[in-house]
Computed example of a mutant assay.
Amino acid sequence: MIEAFHFLRPLWLLSLPLILLVWWLVRRRDGRSTRGAAFLAPHLREALTIDRDATARLRAIDGVALVMLCLAVATAGPSWTQQLSPWFREAAPLVVAVEVSDSMRSNELLPTRLDRARYEVLDVVEARTGSRTALIVYAGSAHVVMPPTNDAAVLKTFLESLDPAIMPVPGNSAAAVLPVAARLLGEDGARSTILFVNDGFDNSAIPALARFSEAAGAPGLVTLVVGRDEGGVALLPDGSPALGPTGARVDTRIDPGPLRRAEREARVPVVRATADAADTRALLRHIASQQLAARDPDARWEDRGWLALWPALLLSLLWFRRGWTMRW
């Protein structure tokens, strides 16, 4: 934000020295008007002086100067964010890669992690009205469920049908998503984002994520982790616990180590699912930042000068004080 900060109409900043000069001249004049009182006896000076403490506190000219400074800054048009053009934003699809493994049956988030993942994806899709979203599912392999579409109703139908039983290969191979997503995005990759919705990464996937994120024109990566670190019990539809290859119950604990590696080595932001909309807002910020990084040629800088109007309005309330007048 600091690097992007600039003024849309910087010539208005030339009024700042003029405002300060006027403030200094008026302050200096008011100070001279009280010097003659120094020749009076102290008890007479105290009795004859009106508003004796004026020099020791805020004067009307101070309020006027501050208001004018705020208005000058507002008129100059400070800006540090861009407003993407609608076509650019809608042309940048989001690829949602949902992990559909037995660990996503865990019930520490009711009804299950997979159900919570559906709700989270729908919240993101609804917040991106008009933009295209593709859906990929993965376990030991990755498969396209829906190519980029702006039809949220169709996407919801496919999300509701997801179940680990349909996956041909068990596992948790996030790396298998990357080439599939890259083919889907094509030339839109640089301004697009791949959103992983899972309960963590395997350490084996981190090198592939790092190489992918470092490539020129690569899509942005972000992950939404659904579940608690302590895990729960993964239950099959009939109510029995899901079993792993060794015959033991599926371990649903989330290992924070690979998540930290993903953030550090592959620069993949990790967002934890929350009960409120904070996780959705965080995901949308990461998606928007990827689009901004792609540099929309038609993007317009947003005029944030209105923020400086609030302190000006608050300072103008001083004129409701009794005896608060400005003499030029």
Rank of each mutant, 00 (worst) to 15 (best):
A242E: 05
G186H: 06
Q82A: 12
D51G: 14
S213D: 13
V96G: 08
A210E: 12
D163K: 01
T193I: 11
A216K: 12
T252V: 07
V67H: 02
L209R: 01
A288K: 00
L159F: 10
V96E: 06
E3G: 13
Y138R: 07
N172K: 12
L224N: 11
P17C: 04
R321T: 11
L69H: 01
P297H: 04
A210K: 14
D115T: 14
N172L: 12
V64S: 09
L20Y: 00
D30N: 15
A91E: 14
G36A: 11
A242M: 06
D276K: 03
E160D: 15
H6P: 01
T133L: 02
L18A: 15
Y138E: 05
P179S: 02
R183C: 00
L307M: 13
V222A: 14
P111I: 05
G130P: 01
M326A: 09
R57S: 13
V137P: 03
I166Q: 14
G31F: 02
V124Y: 06
W306D: 09
A60H: 05
P219M: 03
A174I: 00
R321F: 06
A41Y: 02
A56G: 08
R59W: 00
L18I: 13
E46C: 04
I50S: 07
D53C: 01
S131I: 01
L307V: 14
G77V: 01
A176G: 07
A273M: 05
R183L: 09
T55K: 05
A299I: 12
W306S: 08
N150I: 04
R191I: 06
L283Q: 07
L48Q: 11
A278D: 15
P269G: 05
N107W: 04
R59N: 02
L155V: 05
D102P: 00
S204A: 15
S131V: 00
Y119C: 00
P42G: 07
L195A: 08
A74H: 04
A266R: 06
W12P: 10
D188L: 01
V100L: 03
R32Y: 04
L13Q: 09
W328M: 12
A182W: 07
L209G: 08
R261D: 13
P258F: 05
A278C: 04
T129E: 12
T252R: 06
P245R: 13
A134S: 13
S103T: 05
R285Y: 06
P258N: 04
P219F: 07
A60E: 07
R261G: 00
R89W: 06
V233Y: 00
